[in-house]
Amino acid sequence: MTTTKWSIDPAHSEIGFKVKHMMFTNVSGNFEKFDASIETDGDNFETAQFEFSGDIDSISTGNKDRDSHLLSADFFDASQFPKINFKSTSFKKLNEGEYKLAGELTLHGVTKPVTLDVEFGGLAKDPWGNTKTGLSVSGKINRKDWGLNWNSALETGGVLVGEEVKLQIELQFIKQ
């Protein structure tokens, strides 16, 4: 089998997340600068190897003050830990188009295993003859597992920032 390399199409990809704020609303954000690649045996994704890296300082939640706080030592400490990285350990088919992606997520100087749900959109040619594939990735992590512990208690009970982070990722790759 020939190894096939797939490169991210950043114009058609999003790395998003949501976190509870004040226990009752979600704040959404994303990383604006990232890179990802996949290696497969031919066009077979059963043994796919995934790699991802994102620039922490590209975080955007639509609020400059909040983004600055997220980059500070209270949260990501972007000056000391400028990247988020993921490297897959397995990609297992569950049903047609449904997979589990397992790997090692490195964030804030800590590496931990994660398992994510993937909807695999198959392969298609674009109008310019490029073969593309699309994946929708979702999952949850607890930010405290990576040492992102900052919080503030609320007068009414509970905390300002939720511990659970929901990942919502849309990826489009181009066959090289």
Rank of each mutant, 00 (worst) to 15 (best):
G162N: 03
K64D: 15
G158M: 09
A11M: 15
W128D: 15
E170C: 13
I141C: 03
V137S: 01
E164F: 02
L101E: 04
N26C: 12
M22L: 15
I38P: 00
F86W: 02
G103H: 01
D74C: 09
F45R: 01
K64V: 14
G158C: 06
D74G: 02
G121R: 02
Q172V: 14
T156Y: 06
S37I: 10
N63I: 14
S88Y: 03
S7H: 07
A48F: 00
T89H: 07
I174C: 10
E170Q: 14
G97V: 13
A36S: 15
T89C: 14
D57K: 06
E104R: 09
G16E: 04
I8W: 13
I56G: 00
K64F: 03
K64L: 10
T4A: 09
G139H: 15
G97L: 14
T131V: 08
A73V: 11
K87R: 15
T89L: 14
Q168V: 12
D41N: 14
T156H: 09
A36K: 03
G103N: 03
L167G: 01
T4F: 04
N63S: 11
R143K: 06
G157C: 09
A36Q: 02
F173V: 02
G157T: 11
M22D: 05
T106N: 04
D57G: 11
L135W: 01
P127M: 08
V114S: 09
I56K: 01
G157F: 07
L70A: 01
P82V: 15
L94M: 13
T115A: 14
S72K: 06
V118Y: 03
F17A: 00
G157R: 03
T40C: 05
Q172D: 14
N142Y: 09
K175A: 08
T131E: 06
L154N: 08
S138T: 09
G103F: 00
L70P: 00
K93A: 05
G157A: 10
V19N: 03
M22H: 09
I169R: 03
Q176K: 15
E51S: 12
Q49R: 04
G147K: 11
M22Q: 10
P82E: 07
F91A: 03
L107Q: 00
A36W: 01
G139Q: 12
G162E: 06
W128P: 14
W146P: 01
S13H: 04
L94I: 15
L135P: 00
D67Y: 05
I38K: 00
T3C: 14
F120N: 02
R143P: 07
A153F: 08
P127E: 03
F173E: 00
K33E: 15
E14H: 15
K93E: 06
K92W: 12
F34R: 00
K33I: 15
E98K: 08
G129Y: 08
S13T: 05
I56T: 01
K64G: 04
L160T: 14
T4S: 11
F75Y: 10
K83A: 07
G147R: 10
D57E: 15
S53K: 04
D55H: 04
G62Q: 07
